[in-house]
Design a protein around this nucleic acid. Structure first.
Lengths: 333, 333
DNA sequence: AACATAAATGAAAGCGCTTACATTTCATTA
DNA sequence: TAATGAAATGTAAGCGCTTTCATTTATGTT
């Protein structure tokens, strides 16, 4: 591998000049620039990003922590972040937090040990204090799907309350009255807010939500199956089942059918997130769209703007969900 | 940020000694080791991975190129690779090739520009020549889901022919005779082999595959929908539809139902890959399992063994698929 | 006690760049 | 034409580590 020394020797200029043309520095005469470029080409020179990083104190890498690398939600998120960063010449180091506090901490430590210039974090179990402490240490980061008021400007979030409200509205407009709700874990803010928004929509229309028709799941398919099954077997009737996310909705749909009922004729189902597989479900799932791609892109732009100062694009931190009407929700006569 | 200098000063030893304890080098007296450790702790010292990389000529990073960061197949692949590498203290830089030659080349260039120690490549459009040229340049890499005989030892592949064969066998055992096949793009080796294996299974049992019942898709859901629809409208009857991957199967299922037919009573459907959403489909999809997690792990181990020499685990490069029986395939009376 | 040997430590060069500062070159202007 | 300032280039000091080689210290042997 050729180094900058060889290039400088071949071009007959100093190291500094080679460095200048590499970095597009203005003050280089066109003719010498050409000499250097030529030398680089004949030597098939590639700068050592490591040496550049050491000298410039910038690695051009941003660490990305997500709960899992698989799963449609994280997939879309990673894809949008990576492509936005890559376009700016940055790379990302991705690792998983597995929805556990220790593991999330270890993930951040790991990324930090890699000298990332900034982090994009989707954490679930880490405390606000820990995150605020990161801020104190002058670590540049943005939080995705997590709201901490003290650092609101670096939190990219969805209006989950609105999403829940939209879900409630949709179900009421379809004429349902006997409604069941498959909630997410109550220790998660997003799950709480979705539920709160949902309840508000019902209250505004004076519709009661029977406590016996509420089941708290964990956002996974299996808990959706279990929840729907228990709700069905409990004997309390319902014509619509609202799920706090699509995975649980998928599980619930299987449970409903395994119990001999038809979707949506016997029971309508609504999900939340609008992950890719919702279109593969039968019937295609009516759900609330979570614009995770846009949000990932925005998280990346925040970094680009704050850490790298390479963009001046306008920043938006709060995103709005919207209803996606498909076939799993049917009007009730 | 404290540097090694400060640690060495505080501990009253030389740089070299600090470096030795950092790297677990044997020849350090226990007492001095403790002094150093203590100094590190009080200074909250973290070594600069960049400086380490420059000095040691090893970045501890492996580049990972996949077609897309989203999608259940790549998700599982990335997850297994990342976790195996992370366990060994390596990080991965992930980027997308988008199934286009130019983009795949650019992705590799990008990873190389980041000075990765090695690459794990899932490429679709890149030529064998290009890949062999990489080898010539002494770039250490492993190919996943791609067989090039000249470098077989660095190719982690699935026996797609066997998978196709298993699919054929399964459908025949269920008593189907009128069989349709939704193929993958014929320029892809894996698609070709799946089809070849499939045909072989039928031939061995003397079952004809009507050319009118073959549709070539592109492995995407939409083409599955389109293919199934055309097959259905063509008027040629079939009782089973075999799909070269699960995405197309999902699309096909929707098409079949949109045409008023029942799955599996009117037509059975079989997929290939066993990606996560196959369990969410209705009926749950019978499919051929592609052990992509194991294969990703093995790809990572290959790197660990060949590039980093940190493992001696035994290597396997050819993996076998197997049938996963679920509800979308029904015996034909 | 003197020596040989092994273990522990230190000195210093080098990894391949960037960049502050110094110097040279060139174009203007009085 | 000399003085002046701006533009172009060079010099050299880092950036924070690893590692070779030399040196010192400890251990064991006769």
């Amino acid at each position: 591998m050729a180094t900058i020394y060889e290039v400088s020797a071949l071009a007959g200029v100093s190291l500094a000049t080679v460095s200048r043309v590499m970095n597009g520095n203005a003050n280089v005469r066109e003719s010498t620039k050409q000499k250097v470029l030529e030398a680089m080409a004949t030597l098939d020179y590639r700068p050592s990003s490591v040496a550049q990083s050491l000298a410039s104190n910038c690695t051009n890498s941003v660490g990305l922590l997500v709960s899992e690398l698989h799963g449609p939600f994280y997939g879309t998120m990673m894809a949008s972040i990576e492509s936005e960063l890559r376009r700016a010449g940055k790379h990302c180091i991705i690792t998983a937090g597995h929805s556990e506090e220790k593991s999330e901490k270890a993930g951040i430590e790991f990324l930090l040990s890699r000298n990332c210039d900034a982090l994009i974090l989707h954490v679930e179990k880490l405390s606000d204090e820990y995150l605020l402490a990161l801020k104190e240490k002058d670590i540049s980061f943005v939080l995705i799907n997590r709201q901490i008021d003290a650092i609101a400007e670096q939190c990219v979030t969805l209006d989950n309350h609105l999403g829940g409200y939209q879900m409630g509205q949709a179900i009421l407009e379809a004429g349902h009255q006997k409604i069941a709700y498959l909630a997410g874990p109550s220790w998660k803010d997003d799950a709480k807010e979705r539920f709160a928004g949902f309840k508000q929509a019902l209250e505004e229309k004076g519709v009661e939500l029977d406590p016996a028709l509420i089941f708290e799941g964990n956002f996974q398919e299996a808990s959706g199956y279990k929840g729907a099954r228990e709700l069905l077997l409990s004997g309390h009737e319902f014509t619509a089942l609202c799920c706090a996310n699509d995975e649980m909705a998928a599980g619930a749909m299987n449970a409903i059918r395994d119990n001999g009922l038809d979707i949506p004729n016997d029971v309508s189902v609504v999900g939340f997130d609008n992950v890719s597989f919702t279109q593969y479900l039968f019937p295609r799932l009516t759900t609330i769209d979570y614009p995770v791609g846009d949000m990932g892109q925005m998280a990346a732009r925040l970094i680009l703007k704050n850490t790298y100062k390479t963009t001046t694009s306008t920043i938006q931190t709060l995103f709005k969900p919207h209803l996606v009407k498909r076939q799993s929700l049917q009007p009730q006569e």
